[in-house]
């Protein structure tokens, strides 16, 4: 199997989806799979390829969501402009965090990122005059592409599909390019990479900033699609964990992994929500119990993730050359 074939199959199937399926519920599931897959891929740029595991990425997602929602509701600007502003803010924040926390490794870096997202959560939920505080912001629906008021779910599928393909290509670049190899060297052994003349520090900062910017894009589109921004959701540690979880289940530092992880997680969540949604809100917690256990089991038994595991399987049976 040639490199890139599995991805072509995956995105091809997603593109065919709206032609075959008309059911709004299923299309909604497809959109969320692609959107969460894209977000997990954005996380993967820093967490998987650069080895900078963050549990504060919700901060960048929230910056994107809030920029799009606030510029739209306060100044009636297009969400595309909001998206750009969100990307700018996140890039700057990512550069600052990346630069300042460069010395921190392992648990220290995780703690620093959590603290950063908590600061934004507090600001967003308490600064009532500007952000509407803990009530959140309903995003008005204004029809048209420029205002991202797309009523037809099929339109959304192609929009988030384009985003997904973009994220896949970014990750492919990190897998094949000189810069990607340098990043892998930094991830595996920073001191060795430094001694070989790799600009480890700059690479890590750029990777974190790029990851932040891409996460903000996902956040802005998510806000427009869902139509409501709640500070306790978009800045939560839970959401940050979710990005990481999809990437880990699918395969850290693989281009298709985050999307496969998202297929599993999003499908399970959508299914259980539909099953238990009416019975009792508490039962929705079941899928989070499964997430938690899955996380513990995956890092222990399949640390290479689904993509790596499938690749091993195929190779053992002599079916494939390389992992996707």
């Amino acid at each position: 199997m040639a490199r890139g074939v599995p991805a072509a199959v995956f995105f091809g199937l997603a593109a065919l989806g709206p032609l075959v399926v008309r059911d709004a519920f299923l299309l909604d599931g497809l959109i969320l799979i692609l959107l969460w897959g894209a977000t997990a891929s954005a996380w993967n740029v820093a967490g998987g390829y650069a080895g900078q595991v963050s549990l504060g990425h919700a901060a960048f997602f929230g910056l994107g969501a809030y920029s799009a929602a606030l510029l739209g509701t306060r100044w009636s600007l297009s969400p595309w402009i909001g998206l750009l502003v969100g990307v700018l803010l996140s890039t700057v924040a990512g550069l600052i965090i990346g630069y300042l926390s460069n010395r921190l490794r392992g648990p220290y870096f995780v703690l620093a990122t959590i603290a950063f997202s908590q600061v934004l959560l507090i600001v967003a939920s308490r600064w009532r005059g500007f952000t509407a505080g803990s009530e959140g912001i309903p995003v008005p629906f204004r029809p048209g592409f420029w205002t991202l008021g797309i009523a037809d779910k099929r339109g959304w599928v192609y929009l988030v599909l384009a985003l997904g393909v973009l994220l896949y290509l970014v990750q492919q670049y990190l897998e094949r390019s000189r810069r990607g190899y340098q990043l892998a060297a930094v991830r595996e052994d920073e001191d060795a990479a430094l001694s070989l003349g790799v600009a480890a520090r700059r690479l890590k900062v750029v990777a974190i900033a790029a990851s932040a910017a891409l996460t903000a894009v996902c956040g802005a589109l998510w806000a427009q699609y869902v139509g409501f921004v709640d500070p306790f959701y978009v800045f939560s540690v839970d959401l940050s964990v979710r990005f990481a979880l999809a990437a880990i289940i699918g395969g850290l530092g693989t281009a298709l992994g985050p999307f496969l992880g998202s297929v599993l997680i999003t499908t399970l969540e959508t299914y259980l929500r539909a099953q238990f949604g009416g019975v009792g809100a508490g039962l929705i917690g079941i899928y989070l119990i499964i997430y938690g256990c899955a996380l513990v089991l995956v890092v222990r038994f399949v640390p290479q993730g689904l993509v790596g595991w499938l690749g091993d399987r195929l190779r053992r049976h002599g079916l494939a050359g390389t992992a996707p």
Partner: peptide, 21 residues
């Protein structure tokens, strides 16, 4: 470290939601 971080994070999510359910 990463494996340990995610193990305890997973434990945290599971316990929180066992309590919720």
């Amino acid at each position: 470290h990463n494996v340990q971080i995610f193990t305890t994070v997973g434990l945290s999510i599971a316990l929180q939601n066992v309590a919720l359910v």
